[in-house]
Design a protein around this nucleic acid. Structure first.
Length: 425
RNA sequence: GCCGCUAUCGUCUAGGGGUCAGGACACCUGAUUCUCAGUCAGGAUACCGGGGUUCGAAUCCCCGUAGCGGUACCA
């Protein structure tokens, strides 16, 4: 089994995409498969290396190691689409030679006018097929004369395309509602539908697990597999992650990227566990399980068909759970940037400070939702003022009770007999 | 508009022809000799609507409705 996650490097990793990556990873890990990471950077205007790096960093942070792909290498590279042009050119020529692909010289304006007219007439706005019949010789002459055509796929008329979706079952589309898709743009860069098919086929991907937004593209892709004589992989379309209002989760709902959740102080294992619970259940009424156990139980067939609402409260609940399991030294490491941000840690951390943090943080971590709240807890220690505290009548009365005095005395003795804290700063 | 996908508590879900429709988050109540958090014990809340099939439908079928996706030289 070979699966892949193929993000476009056009921004940070959205939790919805992170979930898609996770489901791929879970399947690969659980079934002893190979998890491939491919970068789909054919949108030249929006793709950046910075985004690519950010996505890689987020995936690593979540612990979703890939076996093959960008930076990891492998026998099916390169793993960045813009570096795979020779394959695309080769496949374009095959289609052109066979006549299943053809040059289209229609201008964007013409296309746009036609689309609007179709819409106005209440018809599906598909490409009219104007350039389907242009002879090869004429196309060659026009190209030589400087025109820059796109290459389209000739979608067969009057038939049906069916594929079996692992999560949804059989899905059928009629080719009459599919316009001839653009395979190669006028600048020679392949379009999504074309590049994915070639890459997935050449990389021997066996299961294409991706977002539901690609379900309508699938028949076009199946047609391409047919045109090339390749065996289509199994498809599995995951429903989308929504906001509380059932609109796709976006910035206006608050945090949406893995990076933001990391900065808000969620542990990677909490995010991973929670994300796995949207649209899937480990069974047995279990919810909080380590990633390897999730992978062991994961079945694509059990993934929900319906979109799920992202619930940060439940994420926080998972985070509380993992915060309690967090080892002291790791907790100190994770907390440090947040304490630093709160001004509680300044300069380099001395072994004494480190030791103190490791001993005091775990107790506090038991009652917080997120890492930054550790600073709030610590604040009660740093900001304690005996004078103002005793000025509070209720507290003063409370502390004068016999029981309280005994406790205070015992604490003072305990403190006096233990090693003093470092006081040099 | 057209095509496609989807529909169990507020939310994530289990289940799936005969169940007290189960769990979790959130919420409410009580306990934990004050409070907060935690923890523990309880509680309230759901099968989108209408038709069919059937002895029996939340479950199967059809229609409707709603949400989402697509209908790009974005992916």
């Amino acid at each position: 089994m070979r699966v892949r996650f193929a993000p476009s490097p056009t921004g940070h990793l959205h939790v919805g995409n992170a979930r898609t990556a996770l489901f791929n990873w879970l399947l690969a890990r659980g079934q002893n498969g190979t998890f491939i990471l491919r970068i789909e950077d054919t949108d030249l205007e929006r793709s950046t290396r910075e985004s690519e790096q950010a996505i890689l960093e987020d995936l690593r942070w979540m612990g979703l190691q890939w076996d093959e792909g960008i930076e990891a290498g492998g026998a099916y590279g390169p793993y960045r689409q813009t570096e795979r042009m020779p394959s695309y050119v080769d496949h374009t020529n095959r289609l052109l030679d066979e006549g299943t692909g053809y040059y289209c010289f229609c201008s964007p304006e013409t296309l746009d006018a036609h689309r609007k007219a179709q819409l106005a007439a209440g018809l599906p706005p598909k490409y009219a097929g104007t350039c389907r019949g242009i002879p090869a010789a004429e196309a060659a002459r026009r190209k030589a004369a400087g025109e820059t055509p796109v290459v389209r796929l000739k979608v067969p008329e009057g038939r049906t395309v069916t594929f079996n979706d692992v999560v949804r079952g059989e899905v059928t589309f009629h080719t009459d509602v599919i316009g001839d898709p653009v395979l190669v743009r006028s600048d020679g860069i392949p379009a999504y539908n074309f590049a994915v098919v070639i890459d997935d086929a050449l990389m021997q991907v066996t299961h294409v697990i991706r977002g539901e937004d690609h379900i309508s593209n699938t028949p076009r892709q199946v047609l391409l597999y047919e045109a090339f004589g390749y065996v289509p992989p199994a498809f599995a379309h995951l429903s989308l992650v929504m906001g509380p209002d059932h609109a796709p989760l976006s910035k206006r709902h608050g945090a949406t990227s893995v990076k933001e959740f990391r900065e808000k102080g969620y542990l990677p294992e909490a995010l991973v566990n929670y994300l796995a619970l949207i649209g899937w259940s480990p069974g047995n009424n279990d919810e909080l399980l380590p990633a390897d156990e999730l992978a062991r139980r994961f079945r694509l067939e059990n993934v929900s068909h319906a979109a799920g609402v992202f619930d940060e409260d439940k994420l926080a609940w998972a985070n509380r759970h993992y915060l309690k399991l967090c080892a002291p030294d790791r907790l100190a490491t994770l907390a440090e940037p947040h304490l630093r941000k709160a001004g509680q840690v300044v300069g380099s951390v001395t072994p004494d400070t480190r030791h103190w943090l490791e001993s005091v943080l775990p107790g506090m971590a038991a009652s917080i939702d997120r890492l930054p709240q550790l600073a709030d807890r610590l604040e009660t220690v740093f900001a304690f003022n005996a004078v103002t505290t005793m000025a509070n009548a209720d507290i003063a009365r409370e502390l004068r009770e016999p029981g309280a005095t005994a406790v205070a005395r015992a604490l003072a003795e305990e403190l006096a007999s233990s090693a003093p804290l470092a006081t040099k700063d």
